[in-house]
Nucleic acid binder design. Structure first.
Length: 271
DNA sequence: AAAGACACCTGGGAGC
DNA sequence: TGCTCCCAGGTGTCTT
């Protein structure tokens, strides 16, 4: 469910309801997420004020004075703000109830997500090796180009590696490669600087646009009656196997790269 | 060091 | 209706 735009949209959506509020209680109904939920450590935050809701890559950080909760939504996780009177349903694993009566509720059917506790303000091990934020100045053209040299890995897998840059998921990897006219199988190190710079621009552009759109398409995420929303933007290739390319008369293909579906147009993305 | 395979888990849809 | 099989927006960890 969540690529970076949805995580950021979730962060923006929940923050105004809970930032500055005192955490009244935390309820963990299932500790079996990707890693066991450290209930006792989380409980120590009860009575503390949530100072900030941050984000690094696809991780969300709930900051308290003693440290922060580190959340990831995995493949199927979602966060909602609900009234404390709304009873929990299937896969609602964690509730954070605040003094204002609002509850931050995690739903995650597949339980690939996590909810950890990080003491103090050091970067957690999971965050230490992450690459730059795609929409920050740290993600530069020169960095992108230099990192690509000598890489034999398929460009699609390369741009999805969070050690290179965070936040490029399966959908937006496919979409940015289509816009750049680059074949997803092409080894990253064999792409010319000129074409890499085009790809660089599209990665930024598409993620930025998706975040903008996420604000409207995902508002349900934080509604009291909310169900997870989906991006309704027009995807050029993702999920369109067998359909006609919007830019030519060719048919969209789907190949496996690193066990992930990879949609592309064999004509528009010949090389 | 780098690339690839595998692991974790549930639900929905296709096909029989 | 119900079974089996395949697929899904992620990513840490283990194996070559």
């Amino acid at each position: 469910m969540p690529e970076l735009p949805e995580v950021e949209t979730s962060r923006r959506g929940i923050s105004p309801h809970i930032k500055g509020q005192k955490l009244k209680s935390i309820t963990v109904r299932n500790i079996k997420l990707r890693w066991p939920v450290p209930v006792a450590a989380l409980k120590q935050c009860e009575g503390e004020v949530l100072n900030d809701v941050g984000r690094r890559g696809k991780y969300i950080q709930l900051r308290f004075s003693t440290g922060y909760m580190l959340l990831h939504l995995g493949m199927s996780g979602s966060l909602r703000i609900v009234d404390k009177s709304l009873s929990a349903e299937k896969h609602d694993h964690i509730d954070c109830e605040f003094d204002n009566g609002k509850v931050l509720r995690l739903n995650d059917p597949r339980r690939f997500g996590c909810w950890l506790w990080v003491e103090g303000f050091e970067e957690h091990k999971l965050l230490q090796k992450l690459g730059p934020e795609p929409l920050s100045g740290n993600f530069s053209e020169e960095y992108f180009y230099q990192a690509s040299r000598g890489k034999k890995q398929a460009v699609k897998q390369w741009i999805m590696d969070s050690h290179l840059v965070v936040g490029v998921g399966n959908i937006y990897a496919a979409e940015s490669l289509f816009k750049a006219g680059i074949n997803p199988k092409k080894p990253a190190g064999k792409i010319s600087k000129k074409r890499l710079m085009i790809l660089f621009s599209y990665i930024k552009e598409i993620l930025a646009a998706a975040i903008e759109q996420g604000g409207t398409t995902l508002k349900d995420f934080v509604g009291s009656d909310g169900k997870p929303g989906y991006f309704k933007q027009e995807l050029m290739v993702y999920g369109r196997e067998g359909e006609q390319c919007y830019r030519c008369d060719s048919t969209i293909k789907n190949i496996k790269l690193g066990q992930r579906s990879s949609f592309y147009c064999p004509k528009c993305q010949k090389n």
